[in-house]
């Protein structure tokens, strides 16, 4: 009896010791396996630039998207019909920042490159008629009128959102190109646009859109046709590489690249190259007739030039 209580007194510490050892071992294995799992899971995120990126994880992309939309809302002075208001119009609103893009293409070379054109003013000026008094009254408290903010100051206001979007998701190409577009076209910040695109190209090597936009910065901002041509030619090559792999390649992009290359060559007086690009463009563009027209014009001019070429060339 006495011995019993004696050993009884000592059993709990022994058990506790075992338990502690077990817990420690369990904890250790768990920690090491977790470490492995974490490494697998986080992938290249471990070498992410900042801690914030790791912490925010995948929600980064969500926020990047949100900020991009926010920029678009700002461009319309806060007017933003939600998915519930304008189910069909919504997808188009998202590219509203690109509408201006199309506009630019149109202005710069009013022939092809304006596939976007049709979508431009699909957005209604007013929302649909309210269904009930709550909706009608509620419209007093938020912007309900479609308005475009085009002044330099207004455009500048959207850039913080674009910058944050680009920062959060460096692989969101649309953000990068759209930001560069506004910087170059409306704010005259070509150097900033260049820097942004360079970083973008480093993060997304071989990206066709970024190369195209970078070419535009050199061409339009720095009047450096040599670099512009190199970039666009590289973009064209990449496009062809990608197209070979994809089911549904971005023909719009191809059209833009070809149009600019054709223009460039025309300015530099290389009609053969122009014709070569236009022939490719003809196969992909919906504006075949316009292009054919241009090709015919060029051919005619070439033929006319052919005869007195000896005297003119030298």
């Amino acid at each position: 009896m006495n011995a019993d209580t004696y050993s009884g007194q000592h059993r709990p510490p022994a058990a506790a010791g075992w338990l502690l050892a077990l817990l420690l071992a369990g904890g250790f294995t768990l920690a090491t396996s977790l470490q492995l799992w974490f490494q697998n899971w986080s992938g290249n995120r471990l070498n992410a630039e900042s801690l914030i990126d790791v912490l925010l994880g995948d929600s980064r992309r969500l926020f990047a998207n949100h900020f991009f939309v926010e920029a678009d809302v700002y461009l319309h002075a806060g007017y933003y019909p939600s998915i519930f208001d304008q189910v069909p119009a919504r997808g188009k609103l998202k590219v509203a920042a690109n509408d201006a893009h199309a506009e630019e293409d149109e202005k710069e070379h009013g022939k092809a490159g304006h596939e976007h054109h049709d979508e431009k003013d699909d957005l209604p000026d007013f929302m649909s008629t309210p269904k009930n008094w709550i909706e009608r009254f509620g419209r007093n408290f938020y912007p309900t009128e479609h308005r475009h903010m085009e002044s330099k100051k207004d455009v500048a206001e959207i850039l913080p959102w674009l910058a944050m979007s680009a920062k959060l998701d460096p692989h969101r190409i649309e953000t990068i190109t759209v930001t560069a577009f506004w910087l170059r076209k409306h704010l005259g910040r070509v150097q900033e646009a260049l820097d942004l695109l360079r970083v973008g190209l480093r993060d997304n090597p071989d990206n066709v859109e970024i190369m195209y936009e970078l070419g535009l910065v050199y061409y339009d901002g720095f009047h450096d046709t040599v670099r512009a041509r190199n970039l666009w030619e590289a973009a064209l090559a990449r496009w062809k590489e990608h197209a070979a792999k994809e089911d549904n390649p971005d023909r719009l992009m191809l059209g833009k690249i070809l149009t600019f290359l054709a223009d460039l060559e025309e300015k530099d007086g290389h009609p053969d190259m122009v014709l070569k690009y236009l022939e490719i463009l003809k196969t992909t563009s919906p504006f075949r007739d316009t292009i054919q027209h241009r090709i015919d014009g060029l051919r005619k001019a070439q033929a006319a030039n052919e005869k007195p070429s000896g005297s003119l060339a030298k």
């Binding site: 002075a77 806060g78 009930n132 709550i134 009254f137 007093n140 408290f141 938020y142 912007p143």
Partner: peptide, 23 residues
Amino acid sequence: YFAMPHLEFFDVRDTLIHEWSVP
């Protein structure tokens, strides 16, 4: 929808930021 208090009426952040006016 018809019974709840529509708190979103009172959120005029967008009009304030974009300088619209609320009557």
